[in-house]
Design a protein around this nucleic acid. Structure first.
Lengths: 123, 123
DNA sequence: TGCTTATATATGTTATTCGTTATATAACGG
DNA sequence: CCGTTATATAACGAATAACATATATAAGCA
């Protein structure tokens, strides 16, 4: 789960967003990072290396260029990690669950036959 | 989107996972980090501060204890960010999209009336 | 071949991160 | 009140991160 660290940097997230729209050359990505963040070409190259090492992106050679593509599986890993928390916000019961977990004794409305991950809630 | 940085550390992810199961005291979390990572109490306290600053967790005072709870909205932010990429893996067409984006001329099977984010695919 | 373009790596600097030990703060129990 | 418990902060060092400038590598082209 090195992926989180790779995405911890705003520049890298921006590069990943761009690659979400399709394949890009290193030069196109460097231009983007220069325009939006004022970064030098080597700086972007370093960011791309970090993304490559984390397998968030992949590159292939095309003559003198390097073409980068997103590796969606890496993002899916994060999505999978989030699964264990999704019940805490995705259902209508999320707010209730939060209330109860924080010690409220009288939730707004009674709810039977439900489960959440938070303590103090019916399991 | 400071959240990614907060979750970049494995110890902090573990603490968040634990808090996903319900409210915990700082001491319980410190014990967990000590047992699983060999960390000192101050080290865990620092991790908790980082999670607090990033609003991934919240704490409240209970006598001499601090009770920590997860702030699920922060995780939802990540989930929302992932939305723009989800089509790249969630559908059966994801693999096909990848193929085409990478320059394959003859996908395994024809698919009409679909859209993906990747270049070279029907929009 | 030799200049130019495209991209990566090297180097040095500064800022940040993460850990430890030591210490402060505040509540608790006798 | 005092010792103990619970937790945070201070101080410091080692490792890492991120940037710029300079340079290497290799392809493209006249």
């Amino acid at each position: 789960m090195n992926t989180f660290a790779a995405l911890a940097d705003p520049t890298r997230r921006r590069l990943v967003e761009e690659l979400g729209r399709g394949e890009r050359t290193a030069g196109e990505l460097a231009a983007l990072a220069r325009d939006e963040f004022g970064l030098s070409q080597p700086a972007t190259s370093r960011h791309l290396r970090i993304l490559r090492d984390a397998e968030v992106v992949q590159s292939r050679v095309d003559g003198a260029r390097r073409l980068y593509t997103l590796e969606p599986q890496s993002l899916e890993t994060i999505d999978d990690w989030l699964d264990q928390f999704r019940s805490l916000w995705s259902s209508a019961l999320a707010a209730l669950g939060t209330e109860v977990a924080r010690g409220r004794r009288t939730p707004t409305q009674d709810t039977t036959t439900t489960t959440t991950n938070q303590d103090g809630v019916v399991a």
